[in-house]
Design a protein around this nucleic acid. Structure first.
Lengths: 236, 236
DNA sequence: CCTGTTCATTCTGCATGCAACGCTACATGC
DNA sequence: GCATGTAGCGTTGCATGCAGAATGAACAGG
């Protein structure tokens, strides 16, 4: 007996054990996934210090998977080493966010190009369906729904570009942005309509198989995010 | 007496003064660095299978740092998990290379933009000095020197953009490309002059603080790389 | 001769022991 | 009162033991 108590599923995991058939999925990955969720949901605020033994205790695993889970998150950029000891959830201000937005801009522009070149009629149809939903949500003033559908939009484009590596990198950057932006998420003065206009232009460019236009509109879309960020920082 | 033989410090160990800041450098990092060098130098060819115990034996460390070193390289994209067991040095053909070139294009375009916006006169001077050297080397037909100076050129631009994160991502992508392209490195039909023309245009755009032009020329430069790749693949 | 089974080797992943180090708090000396 | 020493706790990083799984080879049966 190596594991006294299966406390790993102490949280929302409704199944008492891992499925009998399903691969138990490496503990390291479970730990990483747990922490990732906690960080992205805000349960672990930016700057929170994380220690290996502590995580091991709380999740009921030994220190090895706890340690390696943290290493994984560090490679993903969600935690960063802290001076002299341990790691902490990434924290940063406008400069860090702007750096990340640069990366996002470069990558997302490429996904838009490739999507315009490679996405078929079915992909465009999915985009339009999503857009229709999105319009309704924005009209309702539903901020949470808006954020979710916005993410879904970008995901469709990422996947439509057919470059899995690129998509993965972009996901990582987006996650980091979400963490650093957590305070901003209650976005004052958000304009869902402006976002919708951008999305519409991007969809049309993709439908027309026009990579240059897709890139142009995607860039404008992200620049608007940047401007919003700068403006919010200036106010705060 | 945990480590019988310190075979790992066959390199240069600054074992004299590991003060409060200079750690003796973790074994995990040493392992990762060793393997990284071996992969980039071609000593470990693409597709080579790597097992944790084997690496531990060869480097004279225990399995833990060997394992974690491999995990680090996996996160860097230099090795990839192999079906059912272990990891292997990344290997791939034209599709994988094109995917990476997409990422590189997106990122490098942003570095060119930012360099054009932020690089000072001294930075431009360094670029021009490097360019002069590069011209000589190309004139001599020195392929190795050309490759090195080409890398140096892109590095200057990366660093001139002032976005460390972006630079780091780009380095990773470049490393992966170098590995996958290793066969191609004896580039038949390489045209150093075409590269120089591109570089010159990029430098001029940066000197003129013209981000759009810098981006345009950088993109053209990378597209040429892509075309070269496709052509080589077509021939092989 | 080919196919299917079993066994041995080797691997991965997790748990755990251990030494060295940093930080904190408290006690001691000037 | 202030600086210095020091003991304790928590932490990191490495080594190592062990169980389960996968691979490959020897071998029996059709």
């Amino acid at each position: 007996m190596q594991n006294e108590q299966g406390q790993v599923d102490a949280g929302q995991e409704t199944s008492g054990h891992f499925g009998p058939l399903a691969r138990p999925e490496a503990l390291t990955d479970q730990v990483a996934e747990r922490l990732r969720s906690a960080i992205l949901s805000g349960a672990l605020a930016p700057g929170t210090h994380l220690s290996v033994p502590e995580i091991a205790r709380q999740l009921g695993v030994s220190r090895t998977p706890a340690r390696e889970g943290l290493i994984a998150l560090e490679r993903e950029g969600l935690v960063e080493p802290r001076a002299s000891t341990g790691v902490a959830v990434i924290a940063g201000g406008t400069p860090e966010i702007l750096d990340l937005l640069d990366i996002r801009e470069g990558l997302e522009i490429m996904t838009a190009r490739r999507a315009a070149e490679r996405m078929g009629a079915d992909g465009v149809a999915r985009l339009r369906a999503l857009f229709a939903q999105h319009e309704v949500v924005v009209e309702r003033g539903d901020l949470a729904g808006h954020v979710e559908l916005d993410a879904a939009f970008h995901r469709l484009i990422r996947d439509g570009g057919g470059n899995a590596r690129l998509a993965r990198q972009l996901v990582q950057i987006d996650q980091q942005l979400r963490v650093l932006n957590s305070r901003l998420s209650r976005a004052q003065g958000w304009s869902g309509r402006a976002v919708l206009r951008d999305h519409k232009a991007i969809i049309d460019a993709i439908a027309a198989s026009d990579p240059d236009a897709a890139e142009r509109h995607m860039r404008a879309h992200i620049e608007r995010t940047r401007a919003f960020q700068l403006q919010s920082a200036g106010k705060g």
